[in-house]
Simulated assay, not measured.
Amino acid sequence: MQFGILMGDQPVSVPPEEHLDLMLRKVEAAQKAGFTYLTIGQHFLYQDFRWLQPIPLLARLAAELDDHVRIGTTVLVGPLHHPVQLAEELATLDIVTRGKLVVGIGTGYLPHEYEVFNMPYQKRYGLLEEQIALMTKLWTEDRVTFHGRFWQVEDRPTHIHPIQKPRPPIWLGAMKETGVKRAARHGDVWTITPQQTIEQVEKLVGIYVEERQRLGLPLNKLPLRRELQVADTFDAALTDFAAVAHGKYVSYAASGMQLLEAERVREEFLANVQDHVLLGTGEQVRRQIRDIAARLPIGPLLIRPHWPGMDADQTAGYLERVGREIVQPLADLESIDFDQFAPAAV
């Protein structure tokens, strides 16, 4: 099993040079701990937290990569970019990384980002599908003609092609049947989001497999995003996770509760996270991952090593422990293949 990290945001109160230093420390610590995928997402005009823009940041981090490590966007808000510009920037990034780029792309979920770019939020899925189609042509053809609903290119030459052929892998996230089918049609894999339970994913994998087979497309293991906290006991892992993550969970739920001040609150938090967060001792978390790998065709497993407010030493310590207790012991773990999800013959 391969593992990766999601590099995220920092409070805007943190000096930008300190933010960059933190990113460099993450890359160093993650590689030392055995992680093989380093990824970051994207937001614009974000409230209270700073998201460094992924393409220039990843170009800088590429200088720090070990030979076996890949780097990627998870995810770019695709429809906010013109596909010609984005295709050329990503092809350049693939060259800069010497063919180690993974392109995670999606629609995002914040309407205000579309408003400021004067893009129609209600048409975001159509924009994304057309964008991927045009970028693929720009990456694989010497001259491009494209007549779409949103973008037009008339017999123009292309001058930047990625190292990877025919193009860098495209990862598409989805949570519902329509999105999973879209990922099957337009991406190389469906990225499983961290909020989905294993039972929900099992149902959707069958839909994904059926759509890929209908189109005659190959099946590749599915990246799985999960939050993970390891400690000396389960209770300590829950406490540690709540201490760093509760702010985000509270904001997601638009609730003002203060976690872990009472048993009732602890139980509420545990009920909210227990189906999609890997918690416990090293052995407990390894068992949870083995159980998932026995039920789902997954890989890599992507985790978040840093929450806003954590410093570089805390993040490096987290990565060292997860590497020692989870990544290295599970290096030889193989998840199941897609056979059990194939449609039954009629």
Score class of each variant (00 low, 15 high):
114 Y>I: 02
128 L>N: 07
150 F>D: 11
107 T>W: 07
111 P>Q: 00
127 L>S: 01
122 Q>F: 08
148 G>R: 02
110 L>S: 12
138 L>P: 04
143 R>V: 12
121 Y>C: 06
102 V>Y: 14
139 W>T: 04
139 W>D: 00
120 P>M: 07
115 E>Q: 14
133 A>I: 03
131 Q>K: 05
101 L>V: 03
135 M>C: 01
122 Q>H: 15
153 V>R: 11
110 L>W: 09
120 P>C: 06
152 Q>M: 09
101 L>D: 05
153 V>W: 07
155 D>R: 06
111 P>W: 00
145 T>A: 08
137 K>V: 00
134 L>A: 10
140 T>M: 07
110 L>Y: 11
137 K>N: 09
120 P>V: 01
157 P>N: 07
113 E>D: 12
153 V>A: 13
132 I>H: 04
118 N>R: 14
158 T>P: 13
139 W>L: 01
155 D>C: 03
121 Y>Q: 06
102 V>S: 13
102 V>P: 03
127 L>A: 06
156 R>N: 09
129 E>Y: 03
105 I>C: 08
145 T>R: 07
104 G>W: 08
134 L>K: 02
155 D>V: 02
143 R>L: 02
106 G>Y: 10
144 V>K: 07
116 V>I: 14
133 A>M: 12
150 F>C: 09
136 T>K: 04
156 R>A: 15
154 E>N: 13
110 L>E: 13
156 R>S: 15
149 R>K: 15
148 G>S: 08
157 P>F: 00
117 F>E: 08
158 T>Y: 09
125 Y>P: 00
139 W>C: 04
129 E>C: 09
112 H>W: 12
149 R>D: 14
116 V>L: 13
118 N>A: 14
101 L>P: 10
144 V>P: 13
109 Y>M: 09
100 K>T: 09
110 L>A: 14
147 H>K: 10
137 K>S: 10
101 L>Y: 10
101 L>K: 06
158 T>A: 10
137 K>Y: 01
129 E>W: 00
108 G>E: 04
103 V>I: 14
127 L>Y: 13
132 I>D: 08
108 G>W: 04
141 E>M: 11
125 Y>V: 12
117 F>D: 04
109 Y>R: 06
153 V>K: 08
112 H>I: 02
121 Y>V: 03
145 T>D: 06
110 L>I: 10
108 G>R: 04
122 Q>Y: 13
122 Q>A: 14
109 Y>P: 03
157 P>I: 00
116 V>Q: 15
132 I>F: 06
135 M>S: 02
130 E>A: 05
122 Q>N: 15
108 G>M: 05
114 Y>E: 07
116 V>A: 06
149 R>G: 02
155 D>E: 14
143 R>N: 13
151 W>R: 04
139 W>K: 03
109 Y>G: 13
135 M>N: 01
154 E>Y: 12
156 R>F: 11
154 E>C: 10
118 N>L: 10
125 Y>F: 11
119 M>P: 06
106 G>Q: 08
121 Y>E: 08
136 T>H: 02
103 V>S: 06
125 Y>H: 13
131 Q>F: 04
106 G>M: 05
118 N>C: 10
114 Y>L: 01
104 G>A: 04
133 A>V: 05
115 E>Y: 09
152 Q>S: 13
